[in-house]
Amino acid sequence: MATGYSPRRGGESFDGAKAALFLGSRLLVIRRDDRPGISFPGALDFPGGGREGAETPDETLAREMREEVGLEMARAEMLWRRPFDSATGPGKVWFFVLRMGSEAESAIRFGDEGQGWSLMAPEAFLAAPDAVPALQARLRLWQAL
Rank of each mutant, 00 (worst) to 15 (best):
L71T: 13
V69C: 12
V97M: 12
A87M: 12
K92L: 06
D85A: 04
E67P: 14
L98H: 09
D85L: 10
G70R: 09
M100G: 04
L61G: 01
E55N: 15
R99M: 13
L79N: 08
L61M: 14
G53Q: 12
W80Q: 02
A76L: 03
E52G: 12
E64M: 03
E55M: 12
M73Q: 03
W94L: 05
P90L: 10
R99W: 07
V69S: 01
G70C: 14
F46P: 00
L71A: 01
P47R: 02
F96V: 07
M78Q: 11
G53K: 10
R81I: 09
G49D: 14
F84P: 00
T60H: 07
L79I: 04
P90N: 12
W94D: 02
M78T: 09
A62G: 08
T88Y: 14
G101S: 15
F84Q: 06
A76Q: 01
E68H: 10
P90H: 13
E72R: 10
E55K: 05
A74E: 11
S86G: 04
D85Y: 11
M73P: 02
F84S: 02
E77S: 11
E55L: 06
P57E: 00
F95G: 04
K92M: 13
T56L: 04
R66Q: 13
W94Y: 13
G49S: 09
F84M: 06
M100V: 07
F95K: 00
L71Q: 06
V69A: 04
W80T: 07
A54W: 11
R66H: 08
T88K: 13
R81T: 01
R81P: 01
D58E: 07
R66G: 08
L98A: 07
T60G: 01
L98G: 03
R66P: 04
G53P: 07
D58G: 14
S102W: 14
L61W: 06
G48S: 01
M100S: 10
V97C: 11
T60F: 05
G50Y: 10
E68G: 01
V93G: 00
G89K: 12
R82F: 03
D58R: 11
E68T: 11
R63P: 00
M65Y: 10
V97G: 09
R82P: 02
E55A: 14
V69I: 14
G91A: 12
G89N: 08
S86P: 06
G101N: 14
M78R: 14
M65R: 07
T60Y: 08
G49W: 08
W94I: 06
M65G: 07
F95V: 03
